[in-house]
Write a protein that binds this DNA or RNA. Structure first.
Length: 489
RNA sequence: GCCCCCAUCGUCUAGAGGCCUAGGACGCCACCCUUUCAAGGUGGAGAUCAGGGGUUCGAAUCCCCUUGGGGGCACCA
């Protein structure tokens, strides 16, 4: 089995492309087949090196590796079927176009865009299917010769025979189309650039692709490909069309309505293993109630025949949940390593490791780290700027209760020496102080929490104080007391 | 408009004629735990399996129609 993924570098790696890539990868790994990466850059106007790099980098990030193809952007191709970039195969496309011309399966067309538009408009008003009317197909020899002598640029059109085409789709079963509805489509532009439907078929043949697994949006294009394959005398691969990933409104997932770039998710701090797990379940399930799978587990379980037929809405809540599951499953050491890019360099590795337990079970995405424990490394005055005096009031209480708690906290902190400055000791002392103040523990802790972390929601208070150390804790409590002096009782 | 595909809780899905008074997960709502928030635990609401006809002793599962949704019909990929 040889499968391929064929992204075009006209944008950053799209989630749909990534999922198709994943399914191809899983199918190949499951069957012990070969997985090929091919860059479809036949649209020079829209293709860029940056996008190619984005695609390759993010595929690597997801852990999807290929056996043949460019291993790095702009790098050398690896594999016996090079080139793996369409721009490297121009000569072959030209030869195959000539062959089609010679065998009479294709013909030159001189119709102008204006003429074509006019025909299309006419068809629309007459409610006919919009397709090429075949004018140049029936050109007399003399007219053809005249056009060619004139030297005006022409496109090459493929002659579609009015026959019915059927194939056995790997995920959907038997599908039948009537090619009479198709119309002769263009395979080479008037500037000589070959078009997608044409090159995809040539490339797949050249690379010995046996199974074409792609998005459902290509289902309707398949009869064109099959017609081309037959005219060219190629061997017909199996086709499998996987369901689309959808926006919340159930339309095809698009940049306009959803975040589609894999990079964006990566930058937010989603874990590649969680993302892969999530994508795999968008249209596939093992048929059991298990749901946590590594890439290699997925490969051993994956079955293209069990892929769903209907589209799947991208559900961010579910992704968040899965990401949290993977984060919680990590050791503190692993998580510290992963979180490093989101933490200031000034934070030492051993301090970071001490921070991790405070946030592990409340972390959804790695990028949320600064939000959760930024107070540890932010300067006191910055943290003080995060809240106003009224945030210091306990839920049931006002400035007086806040003052009492802060006062009590000050005393406790002031009398502790550094050796005693641990979460356990702190908790014990603070609870005693709450009692002395005649306050419920929760109400007593609340103003202190805000003073120290700048937020009403934070990691456990005493561990936070321990991390911060005595002096900074004291300073923050004093900052808070200062804020309260401006407020009348 | 034409062609093709699809249709189980809000979402992702289990389900390949009797095991289904439809299971799980996310989300939601309670309660428990608890220094906040999470995490965790327990429980709950939530799908007349889009609707209608068949086939069958029996249908979420098979067939047909309707409806709804999606995709495709480029000198884009």
């Amino acid at each position: 089995m040889r499968v391929r993924m064929a992204p075009s570098p006209t944008g950053p790696l799209h989630i749909g492309t990534a999922r198709t890539s994943l399914y191809n990868y899983l199918a190949a790994r499951h069957a012990g087949g070969t997985y090929v990466l091919r860059i479809e850059d036949t649209d020079p106007a829209r293709s860029t090196d940056d996008f190619e790099r984005d695609i390759i980098d993010n595929l690597h990030w997801l852990g999807i590796s290929w056996d043949e193809g460019p291993q790095v952007a702009g790098g050398d191709d690896i594999g016996p079927h090079a080139p793996y970039r369409q721009s490297g195969r121009m000569e072959l496309y030209g030869r195959e176009a000539d062959r089609l011309l010679e065998t009479g399966s294709a013909y030159r067309c001189w119709c102008t865009t204006e003429e074509l538009d006019a025909v299309r408009r006419d068809q629309e008003t007459k409610r006919e299917p919009p397709r090429y009317n075949g004018r140049c197909r029936h050109l007399a020899e003399a007219e053809r010769a005249a056009h060619e002598a004139e030297g005006r640029p022409s496109v090459i059109r493929f002659k579609v025979e009015p026959e019915s085409v059927r194939f056995d789709d790997l995920v959907r079963g038997e599908i039948e189309f009537d090619n009479a509805l198709l119309g002769d489509f263009v395979i080479v532009r008037n500037d000589g650039m070959p078009l997608y439907h044409f090159v995809v078929v040539i490339d797949d043949e050249a690379m010995g692709i046996t199974d074409v697994i792609r998005g459902e949006d290509h289902l309707s294009n398949t009869p064109k490909h099959i017609a081309l394959i037959r005219a060219l005398g190629y061997r017909e691969p199996r086709f499998g069309h996987i369901p689309l990933i959808l926006n919340a409104d159930r339309s095809k997932m698009s940049k306009r309505k959803s975040q589609t770039a894999i990079t964006a998710y990566r930058e937010e701090g989603y874990l590649p293993e969680a993302f892969v797990n999530f994508m795999a379940f968008l249209g596939w399930s093992p048929g059991t109630e298990e749901e946590i799978f590594s890439l290699s587990e997925l490969a051993s379980r994956f079955d293209i025949a069990k892929v769903h037929h209907g589209g799947a809405v991208f559900d961010r809540d579910r992704l968040d949940h899965l990401n949290g599951v993977y984060i919680r499953a990590m050791t503190d050491e692993q998580l510290a390593l992963r979180v490093r890019p989101w933490v200031p360099e000034a934070i030492r590795d051993d301090d970071l490791l001490r921070l991790v337990p405070l946030i592990k079970e409340r972390l959804v995405k790695l990028g949320d780290v600064p939000d959760l424990i930024g107070f540890v490394w932010e300067p006191d005055e910055v943290v003080a700027g995060w809240y106003g005096p009224e945030l210091l009031y306990p839920k049931k209480g006002g400035p007086n209760e806040a003052r009492a708690a802060l006062e009590g906290a000050r005393e406790v902190l002031a009398e502790l020496d550094d050796a005693d400055f641990s979460a356990d000791v702190l908790e014990q002392r603070f609870r005693e102080a709450a009692e002395v103040a005649g306050m419920k523990a929760g109400d007593f802790f609340s103003p202190i929490r805000v003073a120290v972390t700048g937020r009403t929601i934070s990691p456990p208070l005493f561990a936070s104080l321990e991390m911060l150390g005595r002096d900074r804790s004291l300073a923050r409590v004093d900052d808070a007391r200062g804020k309260l002096t401006q407020v009348p009782a």
